[in-house]
């Protein structure tokens, strides 16, 4: 890599893209994978595992269990106070992605 070639590339545009690239190198990706749309909102109510928690913890729960619960909330099969209203906001595909991500959280 010649000094000349690098220097000739130093237009403002390339400087800017280089700056972005260099910043990118300094930002590690999220440890537990990228959260799918909607997933991070759950922990507002569903906290970490705590004895006697009134609201069920979700992190680390089996994915299929969460998917089944969401489907039952959506159809009304499972009684709910608020989750019936929330489950209806997510498609099957979105629900599966959220459940899979939640199951991998510590």
């Amino acid at each position: 890599m010649g000094r000349r070639r690098l220097a000739s590339a130093l237009t403002l545009g390339s400087m800017m893209s280089m700056a972005v690239t260099m910043m990118a190198e300094a930002v590690p990706a999220a440890a537990q994978g990228v959260a799918p749309p909607g997933a991070t909102a759950c922990s507002g109510c569903h906290g970490p595992v705590a004895p006697g928690a009134a609201i069920a913890p979700l992190h680390g729960r089996p994915s299929e269990e969460i998917v089944a619960a969401m489907q039952d909330f959506r159809t009304g099969q499972r009684p709910a106070t608020v989750m019936d209203r929330i489950a209806k906001g997510f498609t099957d595909e979105e629900t599966r992605a959220i459940a899979s991500w939640l199951s991998q959280q510590p």
Partner: peptide, 9 residues
């Protein structure tokens, strides 16, 4: 960034 989905209760 990916398009988000948000919840409020």
């Amino acid at each position: 960034p990916t398009e988000p989905k948000l919840i409020n209760t």
